[in-house]
């Protein structure tokens, strides 16, 4: 899983680079617009460590934000799984809030909380929370009738067992959703840094953008992509490990 993720990213990244260099060649664009391969390589060597630190800074915020989202989404998803008024309220609220681009309210958070760690964390968590919540509510509110029936008719179906059955039966789906939410958390953090923060790779990309330095942006994109690929691959490995251990009793 891990190597597949990395290979997929490298392929896409190389294809993207090839497209850019192809465009540069076909349209005879200057190095100022699209730098040549050597220019990108030199920038990569010069900025690698600094950008790696920035990416790890962003990644840390994204992971904490994602963990918070997962915790909140599971709590609310489990509470809202029943066909009660509360469950219906949670579902309707989640569907409606999810339809709104959360990133659009980021400026309000920056005005209220400033441009520090907390603002980035809240934006990252908010961006990945609602899609996660919708998926988890969907999974938790869908009965696995062919397993639950016995426990229900014999009076053994406690909420913990119900959640356990539904989580176990949908572990692959949950792993995919959680791995996918990592991208959202990272995107949310980068966007927040891009808007107003004073740290992280989004902030560095903003500076590179002001300098019209595409090489720096390409190096930043490489580091973001490889970090995210490794993280998602590891999440999938953990999911597979959990399923294997759980199934082995």
């Amino acid at each position: 899983m891990l190597h597949r993720r990395i290979t997929q990213f490298l392929l896409i990244y190389i294809l993207g680079l090839g497209l850019l260099f192809g465009l540069k060649g076909v349209l005879s664009l200057s190095d100022y617009v699209i730098p040549g391969p050597m220019g990108v390589w030199q920038t990569g060597k010069a900025e690698f460590l600094r950008y790696l630190k920035d990416v790890l800074n962003t990644f840390l915020v994204a992971v904490i934000g994602q963990l918070l989202s997962i915790l909140m989404a599971f709590t609310v998803g489990i509470l809202g799984r029943r066909a009660t008024w509360f469950g219906s309220f949670i579902k309707v609220a989640a569907y409606n809030v999810q339809a709104y681009p959360i990133v659009a309210i980021a400026p309000i958070l920056f005005i209220l909380l400033g441009d520090g760690f907390l603002t980035r964390l809240i934006i990252a968590a908010m961006i990945c929370y609602f899609p996660l919540l919708l998926s988890i509510i969907g999974i938790m509110s869908e009965p696995v009738s062919d397993i639950e029936h016995f426990y229900r008719v014999t009076g053994r179906l406690r909420w913990q067992l119900e959640v356990k059955i539904r989580a176990f039966e949908n572990l692959n789906k949950l792993t995919t959703v959680i791995a996918g939410s990592a991208t959202l958390a990272m995107a949310g953090t980068i966007v927040s840094e891009f808007i107003a923060a004073n740290a992280g790779i989004g902030y560095s990309i903003r500076i590179a953008l002001y300098q019209s330095d595409l090489s720096k942006i390409l190096v930043a994109l490489f580091l973001i992509g490889i970090t995210l690929s490794i993280y998602q691959g590891m999440l999938e490995l953990i999911g597979a490990g959990v399923k294997k251990a759980w199934a082995a009793g």
């Binding site: 062919d146 397993i147 008719v153 176990f168 199934a247």
Partner: peptide, 25 residues
């Protein structure tokens, strides 16, 4: 005592062996 209904597509949870499931239930 209650009336129970069982059908032929029911499954046992995947995390437990048949013996362990029967012992628990």
């Amino acid at each position: 005592l209650p009336c129970l209904y069982t059908f032929n597509r029911e499954r046992l949870p995947g995390w437990s062996s048949v013996g362990r499931h029967l012992a628990k239930t």
